[in-house]
């Protein structure tokens, strides 16, 4: 059974098309990533899926239910962690989880859940006094307290340190292993590559590509990326004429050259011929970053 089906979903705010004709099907028992830069429409789309907002047009079906009209039924089967992770202030971890447990007819036991998420030592600590990673684990606990089959996690690891991020990824992999469907939004390529079974890349409210990480790279970015820093300015246009080069962009101070075959020595030769010193060089195989670059003409971190 499909967990999520969106058909031609639009959400407009005045002239702004935050979600612009999304067709999307998410199968069950997997981690599905909505990947895109800030402001691309990920959270707005997620709000439609969770029944927090009504589409301007189009239909949304989650676990076979209408998220708006069957909100309460869906709430029993879906767990959520919102982008702004917050709850009733000044509660301890255990108090917050027990409060949320009281909203559901059937729940897991609080203590084993806290233990599973490594929160037992923090059960009596107020949530606002926890570190970013610990706080996010509390919000995972709130999302899991009723043992939902579907989880929506919005930018779960965006504000946590790398070590905590790895720990949270392990938790999510365990949850997938238990047969749950997890839909995450992220603007982290590394997170999407490391965690997601399937990925939809969203930009300007549209899904511009969808598939497994390997499929997306094979389809949209097969090739190699050469990242250079040079001692003198280089006109990107001048390198596009080099044999094998398919795209040249700037990413901060880096010159990013994507190409096929043995294009790297030719690029280096051309720069040497123009007496331009290469101060730093890095060669990478194609990644999701390249997929995004090729599809949108800009790097993910450039945002809108």
């Amino acid at each position: 059974m499909n967990a999520v089906i969106c058909r031609e979903v639009h959400r407009h705010f005045g002239d702004v098309r935050a979600v612009d004709g999304v067709d999307l099907t998410i199968a069950g028992h997997q981690i599905f990533g909505l990947l895109g830069p800030n402001g691309s429409g990920k959270t707005t789309l997620l709000n439609q899926l969770q029944g927090l907002d009504t589409p301007t047009s189009g239909t949304v079906e989650v676990l076979g239910l209408d998220p708006i009209r069957q909100r309460e039924q869906l709430a029993l089967r879906m767990g959520s962690q919102l982008q702004e992770s917050t709850t009733i202030p000044r509660l301890t971890v255990a108090e917050a989880v027990k409060t949320f447990a009281a909203f559901y007819p059937q729940t897991r036991e609080v203590d084993p859940l806290l233990a599973e998420l490594g929160l037992t030592p923090k059960a009596g600590t107020r949530i606002e006094r926890l570190s970013g990673g610990q706080r996010q684990r509390v919000f995972i606990a709130l999302a899991l307290i009723h043992d939902p089959e579907l989880l929506f996690l919005d930018e779960l690891t965006s504000a946590v340190d790398p070590q905590a991020r790895l720990a949270i990824w392990d938790v999510l992999r365990d949850l997938r292993g238990q047969g749950r469907t997890i839909v995450i939004t992220t603007h982290s390529m590394a997170e999407a590559e490391a965690l997601c079974d399937r990925i939809a890349i969203i930009d300007h409210g549209r899904i511009i590509a969808e598939g497994t990480c390997a499929e997306l790279i094979a389809r949209h970015a097969s090739g190699t990326t050469l990242r250079l820093q040079t001692g003198a300015p280089v006109d990107p246009e001048s390198l596009k004429t080099v044999d094998g080069v398919t795209a040249v962009t700037r990413d901060g101070s880096d010159l990013v050259i994507v190409g096929q075959g043995q294009f790297s020595p030719k690029v280096m030769a051309k720069l040497a011929a123009e007496s331009i010193e290469v101060t730093s060089m890095n060669i990478q195989e194609a990644s999701l970053e390249d997929v995004f670059l090729n599809l949108t003409g800009r790097a993910m971190r450039e945002g809108e």
Binding site: L52, L82, I88, P89, F100, F103, Y104
Partner: peptide, 18 residues
């Protein structure tokens, strides 16, 4: 207002709480 501005009310809204 503080609960609403912080998103805490939205968090309550996605539970079965009436």
């Amino acid at each position: 207002l503080l609960l609403r501005a912080s998103g805490a009310l939205t968090r309550l809204r996605i539970t079965p709480l009436k």
